[in-house]
Amino acid sequence: MITKVNAYKWEGQLTLIEDYLCVEEVYELYINNKFVEELVTSPNQIEELGIGHAICEGYISKNSVINVHLDENKIYVESREIKNNIEKDIQIKINVDTILKIIKTMHTLSEVWKLTGGVHWAALFNTSGGVMAFSEDIGRHNAVDKVVGYAILNNINLGNCILASSGRQPYAMVKKIVNAKIPIVITKSPPTDKGVKLARKNNITLIGFARGSRFNIYSGEDRIII
């Protein structure tokens, strides 16, 4: 995920330095052998990315995955059609102390960010604040896709998870959460107006500006135990 390059740094004078940069690669996603799109990503957790992206973008449901495999730069996801795939509304709750525990933990997870400042991250937590999955990527969308894919491959019930993310929560990001059927999301960044509207429409608990001992609840406040 990381490479070193030479660069010149200016601090009153030019100095030759070695700097750490993030590596990016391009992969092609196929679903049931049909080309879907190109994905530009950090070259890790690629199978997880393929499954997670297919689910988060609504191409397939999370219960329809049969198999995933790589062939060089091609990701092949195999799924089956599921009819009447209706899930009950998710009823998990979380208390304030657990939210604060997650906030404290989530800012310590990304070693690549500490070296490069060039990645986003996403993590899944359980309702006790324990880390269940973690991913980092040059793209905030990819990071979410990867933790969702990891959950599917490892039989983690996304309906019992809290998603933590470094990225903003505009409409497209909240749509991923809706498609993955994750009930609670916590981010250090703000949402947008359409992101909040979509979260409220789908009963997603959306928590933003989660930093230190403070956070804002934009939707789904009934899941928070004070």
Rank of each mutant, 00 (worst) to 15 (best):
V40D: 03
I204T: 06
E11A: 13
H107Y: 12
L39A: 00
V96F: 14
G212C: 04
L14C: 09
P170T: 12
N154F: 10
F134G: 03
L115T: 02
K188S: 14
C22H: 05
S165E: 02
P190H: 14
A122H: 03
H107D: 15
K197H: 12
N202A: 07
D193G: 15
N85Q: 15
N154H: 13
L49V: 03
I17E: 13
S42M: 05
T3P: 02
I75T: 07
K104T: 09
I224Y: 05
L206S: 00
T15C: 08
V36E: 14
I66Q: 15
S219I: 06
E78H: 11
I156Y: 01
F134Y: 10
I138A: 02
A133I: 05
K83M: 09
N179S: 05
D89I: 15
N155V: 01
I217S: 08
S213P: 09
I184V: 10
A210P: 05
S135V: 00
T41I: 01
K62Q: 10
K146H: 00
R168G: 15
Y171W: 12
L206R: 08
I17R: 12
K188W: 10
K104S: 13
D193W: 11
R211D: 13
F209K: 12
S79K: 07
C56N: 04
D89Q: 14
M132A: 09
S189V: 08
I182W: 00
K104H: 14
K83N: 09
N216M: 12
N95L: 06
T3R: 13
F125D: 03
N216W: 12
V174G: 04
F134C: 03
Y27T: 00
Y76T: 07
D19N: 11
I226W: 15
R80Q: 14
Y76S: 08
S128R: 12
G208M: 09
G212L: 04
Y150N: 08
E78P: 01
K197W: 03
T116S: 03
L100T: 04
L198Y: 06
L16S: 13
A172F: 15
T205K: 06
G118M: 08
E111A: 12
I217H: 07
V119Y: 02
T98I: 14
G149F: 01
I217P: 02
V26N: 06
G195F: 02
I82S: 01
K175N: 10
L158E: 00
N126T: 03
Y76H: 15
N160W: 00
E48V: 02
K188P: 09
N155I: 02
V77P: 02
K104P: 04
N84P: 06
I90S: 14
